[in-house]
Design a protein around this nucleic acid. Sequence first.
DNA 1: GAATTACCATGACCCAGGTCAATATTGCGA
DNA 2: TCGCAATATTGACCTGGGTCATGGTAATTC
Lengths: 248, 248
Amino acid sequence: MPPLQSATPTTHADEGEGLHFCSTCAFSSACIDAGYDKPTLRDLHVMVEHVGPYHAGEHIFRTNDPFRALYAVRSGAVKTLTVDTDGSEQVLGFYLPGELVGLNAIYPKRFPCDAVALESSQFCRFSFSAISALATRMPMLQQQLFRMLSRELGMASRLAGDHSADERVAAFLTDLAQRFAAQGFPARYVHLAMTRNEIAEYLRLASETISRILGRFRNQGLIRVDGRDVEIIDSEQLNVLAHHILAG
Amino acid sequence: MPPLQSATPTTHADEGEGLHFCSTCAFSSACIDAGYDKPTLRDLHVMVEHVGPYHAGEHIFRTNDPFRALYAVRSGAVKTLTVDTDGSEQVLGFYLPGELVGLNAIYPKRFPCDAVALESSQFCRFSFSAISALATRMPMLQQQLFRMLSRELGMASRLAGDHSADERVAAFLTDLAQRFAAQGFPARYVHLAMTRNEIAEYLRLASETISRILGRFRNQGLIRVDGRDVEIIDSEQLNVLAHHILAG
DNA sequence: GAATTACCATGACCCAGGTCAATATTGCGA
DNA sequence: TCGCAATATTGACCTGGGTCATGGTAATTC
């Protein structure tokens, strides 16, 4: 088998002077071209605090930490997870560059989960009180926050549905491919920053099931697999499988 | 067995003149006593449109309807649900008086689910563009919207966890009891506005499983069941079972 | 109040996916 | 380069909960 092209996202912030934001910033699309005046944009810009790098396995925050800020991924990848009383872990989500971590902490005012870097990662840290104060002056920013919350809600509901293991894995790959594509990577190549076990904890399956299904998808010619690099061969068929779960 | 006391919530709006809101309104707690001046409160008040009654089985909105407004339940009960391609239904949530329906529609700009009245129900309808515009002038209102979105996100994540059928049913009863209690009803009595089948579609179980587990809980002395009226006998034990799922 | 229909309960059986176990394989540190 | 530890794969077997079937009960309708 020929080696697969790696598709690890290593996108970084545009750190030029002036008012350039991270090219992948969760807020940039909504705000930059919304026609805000310079001073307002500057307010948003100066509130950003760049933090990291956090290395693989390091915590960005922990369950019950007081919620003060949202984290936008600049580079790397993160998982959020809860540990229930019997010690089993549930992965709530994986976050790629440009995505926003911590939205589920607004209500309880404390983080209801841990966030752990899957690989060396950097973040933009937004004080929540500052950004929500600013949002009262920037309706587009408020809208963007509402949208991101609502979008994450939709994702969680879809994940909660009862779907077969095949559907779950297909939807997982398809979703990741789309998110890579949103970063400008070819949607054909997906790099898994997480272990099979973490995928399993996310999809509520056993890690053995992940292995078996990836193996079967490979045998069926839907994908090619080389460790954590996946090449999508038959996205058509994968989409059919995933169809039940992904946004309609 | 003695008849169980019914606990159907029939709470209604306080419709007095002046600036009285529905006593159970999703916004009242955050806004009324936040010290806003009369004119601002009036803005919130006049934007409310009372709609209904919708009778059992009637749709409040349907999948793909353009999203224009949020609905706060004034009386009755609602379910939201999706139907996937093979015709099977997934219940996303049940909503009681004081709760807000439609938050998951903000991002896609269309409702991603149907909303159906479980019993005769009335609503306060809030134009979303109006309420988000107002939220820029009322930070407490903005916060309240953020909180409700974040809270619903947390609920969805918890429901998505992989838990045994016993845990799910115990958590379901406990959660409902708490929400009844929040309306001023005794937490001991829970009225199920929905069928066993709808509970099953919500908890991703088969309706037979719901019947069996309610039966077993009854035999174990945890609850008493009379049709759709449930009396919680051993909330302690039920909480232990539910513990994994409910908010920590 | 009889008939129809929806809903509910419970038993018998089955299967998707979990668990346990035995190897591969990969990555990493010295 | 070796060795250890973490991952991944694959097989054998088991079980929680699904499915199907049957009968009971409550609510509507005529």
